[in-house]
Design a protein around this nucleic acid. Structure first.
Lengths: 298, 298
DNA sequence: CGCTTACTTGAACCTTGTCAAGTCATGTGG
DNA sequence: CCACATGACTTGACAAGGTTCAAGTAAGCG
């Protein structure tokens, strides 16, 4: 379960066990640095499942480190249509905006009980002067977001309903499972309705239902009442029609802040996605000049 | 025209007049700082219209500051389907990747002759230590990219073909025109085919053609052979079914690196989008209760 | 046990895609 | 300046994938 049921709501976030240390903003910092960084926080915030964390149009003057729970980002149209933009998992940073004092251009709602730690935008300048890697890491996190967003764009724009649904489920499964490396389970609590899946994939909930029905008939997966079981991972990858490498790249960690590399989490190879070369992405035929591999240490 | 036809290909980029100084990475820096920053460059690169700048799957070890020209980011599927992810205009940063030494997850192709200046990833660490704002600005730029991407997701996922095409054209028009503040022209060279518009909006070129035909019949715009004229801006905004505020927010500048605020570019109000409150975005009805709760230590 | 939310299924409809056959615009060499 | 080649645009008929409307059933919750 992604929700923190063990802690009473009054206990503040414990930075030493925070997910943001694993692949989020605070990755790679030693304990005393964490204490420093936490000094910039304006506090923590807990929201119940179903509540809004950030509302469209409200001014946003802080970034939110998602510590626990699932959160969706979405845009609501005036006629009621909704597009889910992103499923944020612990370690994500929300509310980082291009322009200072800008309004939120989308909303954020908790799917499960959730916890965020809040850092005001105006602390970012000083913070990044003290810890220059923080700025870069924010950049990397944002860049990962847009990379994921690009994959979603491709899914919605150029894939069939079948592919889209399979792709989304595969993505969420892999992302979720990557944080429980030991588990080999192929079953999980996915806190979504079929309607939600529709709103994320650009389909109607009804059609999602039909697609899920097909996938069940074919023995690929079952999903009902927020319970997901993957029955045939390989077939699922096949139906999703995507390069598993791409999905993997999101759970691989950006470069850590310092040298404190932590290989215990992330980098796991979920299900059997490692089977042979399965290129699903084409290549342009315009010759492009050579490139050199280089490693970088920030 | 966005292409630089006046300079021969051998002259290096002049940082003092570079677009990246206006709303890109180098905004707000004084001349001697610019010189410092430019010292981290590994060089410039010029590509002809139609050529690939970055190829999918190749390792990427540098960021590319787009100095001049139009560049598309796209994903190509193995069966030939293509999704255009983004239209990059001067000032954009390309190739900034979450994981060090990662492969490109998408390709980039020049639509016009284009010029980029190249900064190796491994220079970013030192650079951001010397100029901490650089890391944050990169974050802001990436965050803007994902914000734009979110708008595209909504467009493709929840808008009709008509709305999508109108939205894209409006977006490109506004973004392009924002860099020529003086001009009140409603005509421009848009270096796209109808097929390209289709690949960006998740439609077929043929259907784009039909939609454009309708828009022309209705006296809203004409677009053919890369020539765009907006005949009725207000109607176009209406058809696009989007909040112009959102589009505006992308051409508004992020906070400058220092205090050197430069209001001469950007912040223009394109066409007559300023007419009254035109909220096209809905609001959730979940009461987003209270506020900040606990304070935290480390 | 009754309520609510979520899921399921069917039939009619409509938007968009597909296939095919054009026409028009632009550039090039003669 | 024209003939030709090429890429881009245009149009029509038809099919398909997905939506809409409507009427259910099952699961979870107090």
């Amino acid at each position: 379960m992604a929700t923190s049921t063990k802690k009473p709501a009054t206990i503040p976030v414990d930075c030493t066990t925070c997910q943001a240390r694993i692949d989020g903003l605070c990755q790679g910092y030693a304990l005393n640095d964490l204490r420093e960084i936490a000094g910039h926080k304006s506090g923590d915030r807990r929201v119940k499942a179903g509540q809004e964390l950030l509302s469209l149009g409200e001014p946003c003057d802080a970034i939110y480190n998602l510590v626990d729970g699932w959160v969706i980002l979405y845009i609501l149209l005036e006629d009621g249509r909704r597009q889910i933009l992103h499923f944020a998992l612990p370690g994500a940073v929300l509310g980082f905006h291009p322009a200072n004092g800008a309004m939120m251009t989308y909303g954020a709602q908790a799917l499960t009980d959730a916890v965020v730690c809040v850092i005001p935008h105006k602390a970012l300048g000083p913070l990044s002067r003290q810890y220059p890697e923080v700025g870069l890491r924010l950049g990397w996190l944002m860049s990962r977001d847009s990379s994921m967003s690009y994959a979603h764009l491709t899914s919605i724009g150029r894939h069939s309903a079948r592919e889209r649904v399979a792709h989304l489920i595969l993505e969420l499964f892999i992302r979720y499972r990557s944080r429980w490396p030991g588990h080999r389970i192929e079953e999980m609590h996915l806190p979504l309705t079929q309607e939600d899946i529709g709103d994320a994939t650009g389909l109607t909930g009804i059609h999602v239902n039909r697609v899920l029905g097909d996938l069940k008939t074919e023995g690929i997966l079952t999903f009902s009442y927020r319970r997901l079981s993957i029955l045939d991972p390989d077939k699922l990858v096949d139906v999703a029609g995507t390069d598993p490498e791409l999905l993997q790249s999101w759970i691989r960690q950006p470069a850590p802040a310092q040298s404190a590399r932590d290989e215990t989490v992330g980098g796991v190879s979920p299900i059997s996605l490692t089977k042979g070369p399965r290129r699903r992405l084409g290549r342009a035929n315009t010759g492009s000049g050579g490139a050199v591999v280089a490693r970088c240490q920030a």
